[in-house]
Design a protein around this nucleic acid. Structure first.
Lengths: 230, 230
DNA sequence: GATTGTGAAAGCGTTCACAGCC
DNA sequence: GGCTGTGAACGCTTTCACAATC
């Protein structure tokens, strides 16, 4: 079944493929030829059945009794994720986070070179971050067209995020990665993903508080006893 | 049922509570007294049934025919998330990302003041970021004890992340927010959450590629041959 | 003997739809 | 009349377990 045509891959699987890919690339770096679902699962922090089910959505690329051929699986996962070519991105907002993202080599290294960064603040325009010069908001459209940018990154303060998204959409971007703590409203055809750093901390806080409520007595004091289970 | 003792709240709900909280705080800022599940849902980008089900896990704090009282709901969500007091955090790694996180006011503003930041690089030790002086790795334990830090942030390169996590655990933190693209191995009692920026982009890439395959000519024949760019 | 690929079962999360309450 | 709280239905995800295959 599910050969290689337009079948949809479950969201949960899509979210894990990048993790498998990173591990496969590391394995290839160490000249591993084959990998079993169990090995891959251990390295990815999931279980083997999940790996097999996930990979089965791409096609039947394993060999029973042997495992998966690393380079071939890399090729297939890349193809599935659309990573056979680079995806240049533009960043809106050259504050702390925008600068960090632009300066962080990880984006480019993993196929998402920063084609440009813009900011509304004239005092930032013209400064250079990681080899990229900060441009004006008005240059966004030209940047997107010139570099065929499909993905935009919103790294503005919350108050400016919706306008940043509007500008990105107007410029022709079709996917947005949003770091601002707001729910963006965009046309339905536009893909949006959100990364909210404070939300992640608040989820951890929930578990910490829960731990405190169970072990300690009352709510308030978060007495960090060092239960070094290491 | 489900009063306010040790009932577990579903993970999916815990992940949304911070979003509701942010919206409730905005509503309170605008002096809203009450909010309906539908209004809250619209602002959060989810549907009303989900809001009601989510909030029902905290207790029965709504009034039929009226909605939820904003300040009271804020109090309850905060309490549930353990946000009745601050959670100081320490950051390991003062590179691009660590600096951005330390300099970004959003953490402190939302209850997670940065109690310290450390780096292995002696040339960074002593520099100041957002009012915080970068310390040595060896100071981590003292920082954690002095400020009762429960949450650590790993903002190192991938190769250093596991060691950073080990140090955080040894220092006494019980939750870790990991920005490095590696799967951390920690004792089972330690909570870990991961934010991988490249993974988010790769998920967007999947959808972009999918879009291209649909709108463009039909897909490539199942040719396992060749392989365009790197 | 080892390991994949996959039906079937179990577990979660979402949505529906409406009784219950203000 | 309006809106919450929730059982029931549905759909998605994970896990199990084993036949198929190398």
């Amino acid at each position: 079944m599910a050969t290689t045509r337009g079948r949809r891959i479950p969201d949960a699987t899509v979210a894990r493929l990048p993790v498998y890919l990173r591990i496969l690339l590391e394995l290839a770096d160490h000249d591993a030829q084959n990998v079993s679902s169990e090995e891959l699962a251990d390295l990815a922090g999931v279980n083997a059945a999940k790996v097999r089910k996930d990979l089965s959505h791409l096609g039947t690329y394993g060999t029973r009794g042997v495992g998966y051929e690393v380079p071939y699986l890399i090729y297939q996962v890349r193809r599935e994720l659309g990573l056979t070519h680079d995806w240049p991105v533009v960043i809106v907002g050259a504050g702390n986070l925008g600068q960090a993202l632009a300066g962080y080599g990880g984006f480019g290294a993993r196929g998402f070179p920063v084609a440009g960064i813009v900011d509304i603040d004239e005092s930032k325009v013209g400064t250079t971050i990681g080899g990229i010069t900060v441009g004006r908001l008005t240059e966004l459209g030209a940047m997107v067209r010139r570099h065929h940018v499909a993905i935009g990154v919103v790294a503005t303060p919350a108050a400016a995020a919706q306008e940043a998204a509007n500008l990105l959409v107007a410029a022709g971007v079709t996917s947005i990665l949003n770091f601002a703590p707001v729910v963006l409203s965009v046309p339905p055809a536009i893909q949006v993903r959100k990364v909210d750093l404070a939300v992640e901390l608040q989820i951890l806080s929930y578990h910490e508080q829960r731990r405190a409520n169970l072990t300690g007595a009352d709510t308030t004091p978060a007495r960090p006893r060092h239960g070094a289970s290491a």
